[in-house]
Write a protein that binds this DNA or RNA. Structure first.
Lengths: 246, 246
DNA sequence: GGCAAACCGATTCTGTAGAATTACCGGAAG
DNA sequence: CTTCCGGTAATTCTACAGAATCGGTTTGCC
């Protein structure tokens, strides 16, 4: 195949939807899309250079993440993201993650946890820079994924897996803000929280594992709530669409 | 409303997807679609007499309910429904419903609860027949919906609202089995559980409300697990599709 | 004249149809 | 055993028709 790829390489066949989902999510959290704003399929279609089909499908998935509302025959509107709503998301996440870790204590692979703990310690000891943030994100992913997988509840794992897109986009946006501020303090804080979790897992202590996870969630909540202060999603009060009841 | 609902509601515009979702869900729970079976878009399309667009969209929604798995570029396969997986669903439901009622205790409209309690008592006192089953389903819907709405957590409410399709389809299939057996005992049992919940809500006692809800969930779980005995979704062991790792 | 209900048209969603593209799987050939 | 190839089906695109909603306008009535 001697021909070089053309100017445009949408190499995401079968992943278009996911791409759109993540892009829209990021846009919302960055404040580019404001609450109450209507998401017109056609605009999004040529914004992302794809056809209606994946856009429509992405909107359905976004509705599953509760960031947009789907009004029958009226399309999608962006839901409000406020400090309150972030707290609500975190509350749900908390009960799910705690349930997951409660089940994972007995089943999780200790060796894997020990490896992760070592890496977390290394990270905490290493210099704080943008590269460290990327490593922190990666370790966070791995730890939580390991817990989901070991929860012993496939439905719960699938549910958390689905919501993961939401959580991680949010988390990454939060880190973006920290990066912009050259603020790396959070790396150490998170490492401490993660180590409390790994310690409890290694000790096989369900009660303290749940406690550690609760602390981790509470900390993340405080952290995430900050994002909303940067969101100017309130000014368009009149743009709110009145929606028919149910 | 003197007219009885016609056999087919032709005016689905904007609701095709929902229709397909519910139909496939019912099929799975009735055992017409077996675990591991591939859901080919085109077959479903002419099975339901719709085009492939709403089918695909329905599959995405079904994936949100964790009853099918979506393999990129490979389509959808039915996930296993076993006694174990039902227990898993119920476990997740339990933590969510309990969280909802914990928040609802302080906010729920007492008058509404009192009305529901009266209706529940009337139902328990009325003769057990198919019509009573329909009323029981209706009251169950209303009570849980009221709790969701009063939970004070919109995200949680939206989440429960989304999963509702799953829960209710399952519940209805379960009732179908009871109806076929002329078994109405469960109506009284459920009424008792519901009254424990309404009493706790009226008393404003969060602790006992959560306890009552826990009992209700546990009872529902035992009840639902029975459905799996009627599902012959195990035989196709070899049909399992190996899926690429994320 | 003023108010309410009915009407209309623009916009956009929803669903259909068919074709082009791409990916995955399994078998055949080297 | 590896590599190539072809069939099947998913994914996406294009184009279009039907339907629902909204906002404004017109009509009819008091």
């Amino acid at each position: 195949m001697p021909d070089c790829p053309p100017v445009e390489a949408p190499f995401d066949h079968g992943l278009r939807r996911q791409t759109v989902v993540r892009a829209v999510l990021t846009d919302i959290f960055h404040g580019n899309l404001r609450a109450g704003q209507r998401l017109v399929t056609e605009s999004l279609a040529n914004r992302f250079n794809v056809s209606h089909t994946p856009i429509r499908e992405a909107l359905i998935e976004l509705r599953g993440l509760c960031v947009v509302e789907l009004l029958p025959n009226r399309g999608a509107v962006v839901r409000k993201i406020t400090a309150q709503s972030v707290r609500e998301v975190c509350q749900v996440r908390k009960v799910l993650e705690c349930e997951a870790i409660r089940g994972a204590v007995r089943k999780i692979d200790r060796k894997r946890v020990a490896t992760l703990a070592t890496e977390i310690r290394e990270l905490a000891a290493s210099p704080a820079n943008p590269e460290a943030v990327a490593r922190a994100q990666n370790l966070d992913n791995q730890l939580h994924d390991a817990i989901y997988a070991a929860s012993g509840n496939e439905f719960l794992a699938a549910e958390l897996d689905r919501l993961r897109t939401l959580f991680r986009t949010f988390r990454d946006v939060t880190w973006d803000l920290e990066l912009a501020r050259r603020e790396y303090h959070r790396i150490a804080i998170e490492a401490t929280e993660h180590l409390a979790i790994t310690d409890a897992l290694l000790a096989g202590d369900a009660r303290s594992a749940v406690a550690a996870m609760t602390i981790h969630m509470r900390s993340g909540q405080m952290y995430w709530v900050q994002v909303t202060t940067n969101l100017k999603n309130l000014p368009s009060e009149k743009e709110t669409i009145k929606h028919s009841p149910q």
